[in-house]
Amino acid sequence: MTETKAGQPVGEAKPRRRQARGERRIQQLLDAAANVFCRTGYTSASTNAIAREAGVSPGTLYQFFPNKEAIAVELGERLTNQMREAHGVVFTPEYAALPLGDMLDAVVDPLVEFNCQNPVFLTLIHSGDIPGIMTEDHDALHVALHARIEELIGFIQPKLPPERRTRTATMTFSLFKAGLELVLAHEGEEQAAYIEELKASLHGYLAPIIGTEAPSRAP
């Protein structure tokens, strides 16, 4: 087999380049779909509209996705995986050891930022006719997020009875979701104000239950 100067087999270089080009094209189509879904809603979106948004022909789109549903599933999968990774970053013992206000900043800010940068995530979930696999993945994500919140509360206030810890996690998650809806419905200074209102609501609810100071740990 012929080799390049760097010792790289020529026959392997082209497939890798094609694969990289294909991945860039897929991302281009997914970005376009996210814009179309946010602008028109999932139900009204079409593959032709997504192709126009991406600046490609419908035929090019069909080389990668057979239909709108497949695009939505791939987009939802990628966003769900990113959100799972975000959970692992923000729900940590290090953050749980902070005073309540600082902990809320550390946890809420990246989650809100992710949703603000990816508004299509909630757009798809709120659509009544999205593929069932997306609903299942979203439900599983919510279960995982609830469990993370419950773990965090247990770390901060280990003497809290299990049933109270579960209720507190449920209420906290519900407050966050409701506040997030308001955050995403506004822009600029109003959005920033609603982010602070969201944190204030969470602080007001959690303070009597888990306290406001950094949790003490016996040496």
Rank of each mutant, 00 (worst) to 15 (best):
D105L: 02
T166V: 10
V183D: 01
L61F: 01
G128A: 09
A70W: 06
L160Y: 01
K5P: 06
Y95C: 12
T168W: 04
P131I: 04
E187H: 11
T60C: 07
E187V: 07
P161N: 10
P208L: 09
M103H: 04
A218T: 13
A140E: 14
G101C: 05
G59S: 15
Y205R: 09
G88E: 14
H142W: 10
N48Q: 09
E150H: 11
Y205W: 08
G22E: 11
L79I: 09
L141E: 07
P99F: 08
F173P: 00
I210T: 01
R217L: 14
T47G: 07
G132W: 03
E197P: 02
R84A: 13
V143D: 09
E23G: 03
L61A: 06
P162S: 12
T80H: 14
P9N: 11
R217T: 15
R39D: 07
A185W: 00
G22S: 11
T4I: 03
R52T: 08
A140Q: 14
K159Y: 04
A45T: 05
G11Q: 14
G41M: 03
A45P: 00
E136V: 14
Y205C: 04
E69K: 01
R17A: 15
F121M: 09
L180G: 01
G11L: 07
T47V: 14
V183T: 13
S57V: 06
T170R: 12
F155E: 06
G128N: 12
S174C: 15
P208E: 02
P161C: 00
Y194P: 00
N48V: 03
H186N: 12
V107F: 00
E190M: 10
A72F: 01
G7T: 11
G88S: 13
L206V: 06
T60W: 01
N35Q: 10
L145F: 11
K199P: 00
A13E: 13
A185I: 00
F155Q: 04
C38Y: 03
E213N: 10
L104H: 07
E151Y: 10
R17K: 08
D105K: 06
V89T: 15
T80E: 11
V10I: 11
L79C: 09
A218M: 05
E69I: 02
F176Q: 01
L198R: 02
I50K: 00
A106T: 03
R148Q: 15
L202R: 00
R84V: 15
A72E: 01
T172R: 05
Y205S: 03
L160G: 02
V107H: 00
F91Y: 07
L98I: 02
E136Q: 15
N81V: 10
G188Y: 04
S46P: 01
G204N: 10
G179D: 02
R16L: 15
D137E: 13
N115M: 06
Q28E: 14
A192I: 07
A96H: 05
M134V: 13
V112S: 03
A193D: 14
V183S: 01
E113A: 09
G204Q: 13
H203D: 12
G7M: 06
C38L: 10
E197S: 15
V90K: 12
E213K: 08
H186Q: 04
A200G: 05
G88I: 06
G132A: 11
G55C: 07
F173D: 08
L98M: 12
P110W: 03
L182S: 09
E113R: 11
R39N: 03
R164Y: 07
R25H: 11
A33E: 10
A192F: 05
E196S: 05
